[in-house]
Design a protein around this nucleic acid. Structure first.
Lengths: 224, 224
DNA sequence: CAACAGAATTTTGTTGACATTCTACAATCA
DNA sequence: TGATTGTAGAATGTCAACAAAATTCTGTTG
């Protein structure tokens, strides 16, 4: 005899979801969405009150985000949303390029046919967005595309690292991709990545993945 | 007007370093020293009592270590020293190889004459240890050597990442380098790295740095 | 009016206690 | 005997209150 599935899941979710995690996710969302702008101080008391919890979970969540590089804490002064210098951002682009190459190479070696067609669908959607000059859609699909590649590389440190560095980059809240002029070249690089993955060429995939991010760095420099 | 140096330092010292940091360092030390073996549960209450603090700082320190990959936490069960699978370790070697290459390339571009001779001194000391078959000394100098390179690359995410991944690797507590048979080849690679850095050849330094870590991965596989 | 000293307020650092959940072991029953 | 249930102890999750530090405000003084 089995209990109702949805009931079981509801129990599981309730049990395994400490407040710290909820708070952490919410803080991360606020930061990445720009609701808490770079340099802003995160007031423990007011945040705790807003979320209806005590300060302890908020503090723990902050420690978590600190190690991830999204906030910095100053003793007796509080935690602040991290401000990213240009040099910081450029370095993040280089590191992401290295790890993205690693991920792409692995995906090229292990991707199933289904994964490949999924990635092609992403590129097609981005092409539509680029043609329509729809920067918002392209932006969102772009993030989802790269997350999908990271996911396809399987679990492991490389994936978590790539995702974490991606969040750090977004701290700058600079929309590098804007206008058809930069959307089209960006998606051409996506096409190359997917092509290399599709034909199982790990080395080419590594180069294409890394180059794409290094070109992103160039595009960033050009927009300044 | 400048404040007296010793007075300033006394102020800095008085400005209480938060307990979280002390606790974090101590937990990290215990884990890396093997006093808290992989898989062991870290009891909040007993740790807090041992260190003479309350549980809150211990919990915050644990969240910090969690993001760094040194512990994993299970809801309502506690935090456990992370157990590193062989696949985990191999991936860490590859990621470190990528980042080490990045660091070495940067050092090759920026190192001062003093830094270069310092690195050469490290290699010489390691050679002595290898000749004397002194694995313990070699082990310690090896870590210091790589930390020195990371430091010479300047501040930034690459350096912190490299160091953090290094700590993760040490979770396995496996002494790969043992016996003159593996010490000598390892130090030959060190020599190559330093040579490439000394002549300012960034590409060669990147390759040498990466290869050294990939060879470390090979040596790990061979000892199994 | 500017600069400074000091009180008042706010905010973080830390603690101990309470609530909930898990674990271990003993008692019970087939 | 073996499996199951119930219970006691211990551990984690959360909270509210106190202590210490930083910030802000204010009144004074030159």
């Amino acid at each position: 005899m089995a209990v109702r599935r949805d009931l079981r899941e509801s129990f599981e979710r309730r049990r395994q979801r400490p407040l710290v995690h909820e708070v952490r996710d919410e803080l991360e969302r606020m930061i990445l969405a720009g609701e808490a702008p770079a340099g802003a101080r995160l007031n423990e008391h007011s945040l705790a009150a807003q979320m209806g919890v005590s300060r302890a979970p908020v503090r723990e969540a902050a420690r978590s985000l600190e190690r991830e590089g999204l906030v910095r804490t100053v003793t007796n002064q509080g935690v602040f949303v991290r401000e990213l210098s240009l040099d910081d951002a450029l370095e993040l682009y280089e590191l992401r390029a290295l790890i993205a190459g690693h991920l792409c190479a692995r995906v090229a070696e292990t991707a199933t046919a289904e994964t490949k067609s999924e990635l092609r669908a992403f590129v097609a959607r981005m092409q539509d967005a680029a043609d329509a000059n729809d920067g918002d859609t392209y932006f969102a699909e772009n993030i989802a595309f790269h997350d999908r590649i990271a996911e396809a590389a399987g679990p492991g440190r490389a994936r978590t690292l790539y995702v974490a560095l991606g969040k750090e980059v977004r701290l700058m809240r600079l929309r590098v991709l804007s206008g058809k002029a930069s959307l089209a070249p960006s998606n051409r690089e996506h096409t190359e990545i997917v092509a290399a993955i599709a034909r199982g060429d790990a080395d080419a995939a590594r180069r294409a993945g890394a180059d794409h991010h290094l070109n992103g760095k160039k595009r960033l420099l050009e927009t300044l």
